[in-house]
Design a binder for these strands. Structure first.
Lengths: 226, 226
DNA sequence: TTTGATCAATTTGTGTACAACGTTGGCGGA
DNA sequence: TCCGCCAACGTTGTACACAAATTGATCAAA
């Protein structure tokens, strides 16, 4: 089978985090599309464990709103709910702006270098990247930029909102036949703008740039839908 | 034993929610003090179930940061972490302000009547309420006022933050020998102010009043600590 | 043909035995 | 007396068997 090697040295909590991150990633990349049914036993077998720890992971994903377990039916990847998506986007906007005001963390040289490398990879991706590559890249950038705030509950909340909105955005973008190539280019421009703001040490500007792009991205999606 | 009667008509999810709310309530009321060890088997027996559903509840509480399970040790009610508390308070301030801007829900007559009754009960509590009564009352008011925003993820986030900060506040307030009677009176004043703002339909004002009081409450606590 | 009930198959939820792990107290030796 | 070892105990984590619930197929009757 597609046995994922379990690391025996990892602690229980590490294994839980790894499983949670991996399945969340698959959901976000649409490997598990909205509405798809996940099998507890299949997942457990794939990761070389039993149902119990896997159920622990799925329960957490259910609390986060990414899946929904129904007795006798299965564990379903939650589907798009436009009304909920709009609320999540609005809240994400405001929280993103807050990252510039609540415990901002001034980036060090290593951080700036990491981001520069990311942006370079992004330029390449604009040319020959698939939607899946693009989303994976987007996730990576998000995780890096999240480090710019030292407020942990803010980080957690933003992370939850990000994963809950991103995959629905991708689904809707494909469905509405949004010009993904154009979206890539806009994202790359955003990163360039963020780099400039970062090098001048203006974290509030970084936050507002992100806020503006999240807002515009959602507007484009809504306009295309109508 | 202290068998809590299980409702056979309730669905699985209802039972889970009930258990979660009850244990969270006990933690917030300091029935389970920070550092205290909870027994899975004891809780399971008390609520007339087995360890499995109880572990599902405790896992959720752990994800919410209210307890921490350690293999071979026990499930401990998380203790106060002043640095984390400060971050949570700051975020709570901003999110509380947001309730006035994100999907505000104009209260109907029933809501206003409910609140008036609450305020009346609050006046009585100022005279002869124990700290435990006061906290229970505070929780009730919080849940009611939360209905003033229609933004569900905002509600959820605020709820998490509220329960995570409130119990630590109570612990610290007792420890720092804060004048709880004075705190009761101030809270009652806050409610009067909120009523006025509500009757004039100014939800943004309601949000700012709450924000101001949360901020001042934390300031008083910090000043008393030093 | 349609409709209805019934049954088998599949899935999640629960209970329980056992493994893994950390703590604590006692015991022995220096 | 003090230190270190270790064994017994209690707790959480895992695995698995079974219960509960839903779905879909199948078949008989209208």
């Amino acid at each position: 089978m597609g046995d994922t090697t379990p690391d025996p040295s990892a602690t229980v909590r590490d294994r839980h985090e790894a499983l949670h991150a991996e399945i969340r990633r698959r959901i976000c990349l649409l490997d598990y599309a909205p509405g798809q049914r996940l099998s507890e036993v299949a997942l457990a077998e794939e990761f070389g464990t039993s149902r119990t720890p896997m159920r622990r992971v799925l329960a957490r994903l259910e609390d986060e709103g990414l899946v929904q377990s129904l007795h006798g039916v299965g564990t379903l990847v939650t589907d798009a709910d436009i009304a909920a998506l709009e609320q999540e986007y609005h809240l994400r906007l405001e929280l993103t702006e807050l990252t510039g005001r609540l415990d901002p963390v001034m980036p060090d040289a290593v951080f700036l270098a990491t981001l520069d490398q990311l942006i370079a990879r992004g330029a390449q991706m604009v040319r020959d990247g698939t939607p899946r590559d693009f989303t994976a890249f987007d996730m990576e950038v998000f995780q890096v930029l999240l480090q710019l705030t030292g407020n942990l509950p803010l980080r957690d909340t933003l992370e939850r909102l990000y994963y809950k909105t991103k995959r629905i955005w991708l689904t809707a973008a494909i469905e509405a036949q949004l010009d993904l190539q154009a979206e890539f280019r806009i994202f790359h421009h955003e990163l360039e703008a963020i780099r400039i703001a970062l090098h001048s040490g203006d974290l509030d500007a970084v936050a507002h740039i992100q806020r503006a792009h999240i807002s515009m991205s959602f507007q484009r999606l809504r306009k295309q839908r109508d």
